[in-house]
């Protein structure tokens, strides 16, 4: 190291401050500050209605939350809607593997798969609402054709004595786990396909070719070519190459995607609830974010909604730590 660079090093602390400052200030004001502010607010009864005097109430909001049946139901709803994440992530990986080569028309494919991500918003939700119409929506038209014209129903009727009918989708409280409407327990009557499953399917369709696929494509293109060639020289088949070279090399990407999807999933469901279902039927598509919004902006109980937000944060934090412990042993961030 020459004397000149050493001289520069001496100034690095000051230079670093200068480079960091613009971003750090904003980060402090719009991220760190609000996080602590909301933590502090969650210990109060802060309410927008003037007749309720401001008070510090310690952990009371959190205690109330644990006995709030709605919270647990919406928590289960949120968790249920995340069941599609593994499928979406796996699908993104498969798509990325298929697209990671010099095929003709690759740009067209990538763009087509990315289309849902462009459109996500009111129009897309309205479009899916129409697709799910139980009577004349294309989804059920196909299902009914499958059931009736292909004779599936005749077969089912012979085997079980009952006929299958197409799901009511957004109008139905049924779900694949048979979760009850008013209590978190399994009810046989609730078994089937309903609003939550409809939202999951739509979510997978949107996510599969979106940012996760891009991240996987980036991860694939970063795998050193020597590693793949070495595996082939050793005579490894395609599956073995994937299993022992590609998959471990994609670990940082997968880790990142899993964590980010989890965070996204836990705070998701707002627009769907607002535009497609209004949180219904019977609250089955109300997620925690929608509940926080309701509590803060409709019931004006800011303190309580902050405590829900913080419980959400703690859950994410714990899950990420677990992820980190098991998933990132070999990672280097």
């Amino acid at each position: 190291m020459s004397w000149k660079t050493r001289r520069l090093r001496g100034h690095e602390g000051a230079a670093a401050m200068a480079f960091l400052l613009p971003n750090f200030l904003g980060f402090l004001v719009f991220t760190i500050g609000p996080v602590f502010f909301s933590l502090v607010a969650s210990f109060s009864n802060w309410n927008l209605q003037r007749t309720i005097p401001f008070q510090w109430i310690g952990l009371e909001n959190y205690a109330k939350l644990f006995h709030d049946p709605d919270f647990w139901l919406y928590f289960v709803n949120t968790g249920y809607l995340m069941l599609g994440l593994p499928v979406a992530i796996g699908g993104s990986l498969v798509l990325a593997l298929l697209l990671n080569r010099d095929l003709r028309g690759i740009v067209a494919y990538r763009t087509l798969f990315y289309l849902p991500t462009f459109t996500s918003g009111v129009a897309l939700l309205i479009l899916w609402k129409a697709l799910y119409n139980p009577d004349f929506g294309p989804v059920n038209v196909v299902i009914n054709w499958f059931l009736d014209s292909l004779g599936v129903n005749r077969l089912v009727a012979i085997l079980t004595g009952r006929e299958l009918s197409a799901p009511q989708w957004l109008l139905s409280t049924r779900n694949l786990l048979g979760i009850g409407v008013e209590q978190v327990r399994i009810v046989a009557k609730q078994w089937g396909l309903g609003a939550r499953d409809a939202i999951i399917i739509m979510g997978i369709w949107v996510a599969i070719g979106g940012n996760n696929m891009l991240l996987y494509l980036a991860g694939l293109s970063n795998i050193p070519q020597e590693l793949l060639e070495a595996a082939q020289i050793d005579g490894a088949g395609r599956w073995a190459t994937f299993r022992h070279v590609t998959w471990p090399q994609l670990a940082p990407t997968t880790f990142f995607i899993v964590v980010m999807s989890f965070i996204g999933g836990l705070q998701g469901g707002f627009e769907q609830a607002r535009v497609m279902t209004g949180g219904g039927p019977a609250g089955t598509t109300t997620t925690l974010t929608y509940y926080i919004y309701t509590k803060a902006f409709e019931e004006f109980d800011i303190g309580y909604s902050c405590s829900i937000a913080w419980v959400l944060f703690i859950i994410i934090f714990v899950v990420t730590l677990i992820n980190w412990k098991f998933g990132s042993r070999e990672l280097n961030y």
Binding site: A16, F27, V259, I263, L312, F317
Partner: peptide, 30 residues
């Protein structure tokens, strides 16, 4: 650049990736 608290501050940055938007929404609005 090399500076004293670099890795700690970076970890803080990383940790905030986990913060759900709803947590900061109300304070930011205020």
């Amino acid at each position: 650049l090399r500076w004293k608290w670099r890795d700690h501050v970076f970890r803080l940055y990383l940790a905030t990736l986990m913060i759900p938007g709803v947590v900061t929404m109300i304070p930011n609005y205020t």
